[in-house]
Write a protein that binds this DNA or RNA. Structure first.
Lengths: 142, 142
DNA sequence: TACAGACTTAGAGCGCGCTCTAAGTCAAGC
DNA sequence: GCTTGACTTAGAGCGCGCTCTAAGTCTGTA
């Protein structure tokens, strides 16, 4: 037994498949993970930490190629702090925009649900104020 | 010239490509759009209204197969109001969960950005309270 | 009537993010 | 030493949601 976690251990710990872990390495999201003499990956604590953060970026919808960009900066030492901060800040505003978009569309959804619960026909209710409001929301761009 | 909009007009109005409009019809998201004698689609107001709403469902991340399910109910008359309401209500809670997930991950992102702006190394700062907090957030499931 | 340009179909292709397969190697326990 | 099960690689395959292609048809205008 050597130092560091095997791919199976990391997989269990983080809830990502071994396939995905290898894929992330191939894709440049991780440094080349150090191997035993037999060629078996031994993940260090830093690798697991990195993975935890990258997984959050994925959950926030950052595409793989951008995560790679971040990861490459992260591997290039501390004179990339500013660039990394900028990259994350840009992504931050995209996430906020996404949240706002979801919230706007939730309004539409709520109106529609209310109309169904009131049993009034959604597409052809010219008099209904609720139907009018829905129509108005739908006509606005996004 | 006949009654109703051509695919190009709908495409321009809603900002979706003609390709996508045909695809949505094929996929069962729209009723078979009525054609002219020459076989050219003429979208009616009801089709456009439907499309507007379906587009919102897409923006909220509902997969095509679920939208089809909803659309099929919508084509089956008003005794599917309850089922439609349930389907949308279920999706509503998924959207809310997604928003909350994004907000939780935004916390992680904000902490990370703060650390970069303070110029302190994120992965190895055992003393820093901010780094500790980040580590804590990252270790929690999602 | 002829032309241009938008329309039609069936079906292939693509980018994404995994996910799986095949064939083989490594290593912990008996 | 042998078995067993996890590991390795290269590369294929997949589900999703479009997106495009090819070959041909329709239609408004000159």
């Amino acid at each position: 037994m050597q130092e560091g976690l095997t791919i199976g251990e990391v997989s269990g710990k983080l809830g990502m498949s071994s396939h995905t872990l290898r894929y992330y390495e191939r894709a440049g999201l991780l440094r080349p993970i150090p191997r035993t003499e037999g060629g078996i990956r031994r993940y260090q604590e830093q690798d697991v930490e990195m993975l935890r953060f990258l997984a959050r970026l994925r959950l926030m919808g950052m595409p793989i190629h951008q995560i790679r960009e971040y990861a490459e900066l992260a591997r290039s030492g501390r004179d990339t702090f500013e660039a990394r901060g900028e990259l994350l800040t840009k992504h931050r505003s995209e996430v906020i925009a996404r949240i706002e978009e979801l919230q706007r569309n939730l309004e539409v959804l709520d109106l529609k649900i209310e109309m169904y619960s009131r049993g009034c026909t959604p597409l052809s209710a010219p008099g209904d104020p609720c139907a009018e409001k829905l129509r108005g929301l739908l006509e606005r761009k996004n």
